[in-house]
Design a protein around this nucleic acid. Sequence first.
DNA 1: GGCGGAAAGTTGAACTCTCAACCATCATCG
DNA 2: CGATGATGGTTGAGAGTTCAACTTTCCGCC
Lengths: 160, 160
Amino acid sequence: MLCVVKSTRWLSDDEQKVWRTYLLANQLLWAALDRQLQRDAGMPHAYYMILAMLSEAPNRELTMSQLARMVGSSPSRLSHAVSRLEQAGWVRRRKHDTDGRTTVASLTDDGFAVLAAAAPGHVEEVRSILFDPLTPEQVEQLGAIVAAIVAPNDGRAPHL
Amino acid sequence: MLCVVKSTRWLSDDEQKVWRTYLLANQLLWAALDRQLQRDAGMPHAYYMILAMLSEAPNRELTMSQLARMVGSSPSRLSHAVSRLEQAGWVRRRKHDTDGRTTVASLTDDGFAVLAAAAPGHVEEVRSILFDPLTPEQVEQLGAIVAAIVAPNDGRAPHL
DNA sequence: GGCGGAAAGTTGAACTCTCAACCATCATCG
DNA sequence: CGATGATGGTTGAGAGTTCAACTTTCCGCC
């Protein structure tokens, strides 16, 4: 056992159990989500989120920075992802009109179509795995919990 | 907006918000965890979990299947990971005595040392990101919530 | 005994992600 | 005006993951 090693603030047995179960739940969720999206839309969840964010933006376009913040990606990751999406014809890139540094990504009609096709199945999956097993009170509690976890990083864009 | 597209069981505004915040909290957690472990132990969280599970097992060894179930990996992923860990000298592989199909992975002394060195920092990270921001009631609630999410897959080994 | 299928693992290729290095453009200030 | 630093983004290499195909071994049954 490791817990004899030093005086650290180890997790209590209860905390340990919550943590381990959390990890398991998470893996279940991601595995199911990624598999569903890969099967039905041919893309991982991160890419789906990019399309989703673009679809809700005014004029269906956002700068790379905005996008990166919204989906919680590093600039690099986003750049690679958008390259891929562009290559698939779902997103287009162009230079910003007034600021030569920034590039704007916009959702194409094809991209929107793919998103629209994938969305129902995706929502159904989220619902069946996350929301259906929970009572309304638990959903509310979960909302407060995740809010509390995110809160310390309220300073926007936690340089992920 | 996508929600005009079809009659799906879309998420309510509240559910939507919980879901988005959950995604963000998750990303924060993983990013911090992976960065801390990469920095302090030179391995991603998935690898840490493998060492951790082995360290708690009787005689510090487990079959690949057992290990895969415990850490929630696909056989392939685990095989690649263990190859890497073996190459680092932290894990050893050998054939099972009586069943020629199965291979057992065991934690080396070096592996245990690396784990012991990384553990305190890791626990501290988990604590500061997940448990510290939560009240004791919330921790309890979270426990119930993740248990409810995992429960439907009680049938062990959800073929991840 | 031998055959068919299940179980346990491994492998290779394609893909995604991370990390560090890098380029270009804007802002500011002497 | 021109240097300096900050901002926005991209690139390439290396590491990790996924997916499908494959091998080997075990089990049950004719």
